[in-house]
Amino acid sequence: MTIIHFLVLMYVLKNKKIIMDRLIIEATKKTPSVDLDNSTGILNISGMSCSENAMGFFTPIFEWLSHYVANPQEETVMNFNLKYYNTSSAKCILDILDKLLVLNEEGKILNVNWYYDESDDEMLESGENYSTILDFPFNLLPV
C-alpha cells in the first residue's frame, strides 16, 4: 500500500459511518455519496466520482459488497445516479456491477437502475455500454 492509498483510506474511514450492516459515506467535491443498506437490499451511489485514486475510495464498498453477496436480500436494487465519473472510477463501477451479478447467477433478483441527466447523452451511453459489457439489462432512467 502506498502512502497515497493509506491516506485516502484514512480519509474514507474518517468520513464513513457503519450503522449495523449499512455503509454510509458522505459525498465530497470529488467522491460520491454512498448508502448501502443490507436490511433493504437498496444500494445507492450518487454524485461526483472523480478521485484520482478511485480504488482507495471504493475499497470499503468492495469489502461491504463481498459480505453482502454472501448473505443477500431476495431482491437487490443498485441505483447509480452519477453526475460525473473519471476513468479511474470507471473500472471500480464495473467491479461493483461484476460483484453484484453473482446474485443474478444464484437466482436472486437484481435490478440495476442507471440514472442520467436528460441532456447527458454520454452518461446514457455509459449505462448502455456497461450493460453490454456485462450482458445484463439495466433500467436506464432519465432524471
Binding site: 484520482e52 485514486n53 480504488m55 476513468t87 479511474s88 470507471a90 473500472k91 464495473l94 455500454n129 459489457i133
Partner: peptide, 26 residues
C-alpha cells in the same frame, strides 16, 4: 476507440489506480 476502451476496462491486470491509457482513449 470504444472497443479499445472496453478492452482496457475489462482487463484484469489494468492498473488499480486507473491509467493514462484509458484516460487518453476517453
Amino acid at each position: 476507440l470504444r472497443s479499445v476502451y472496453n478492452k482496457i476496462l475489462t482487463n484484469k491486470s489494468y492498473s488499480k489506480q486507473g491509467g493514462a491509457g484509458l484516460g487518453f482513449v476517453d
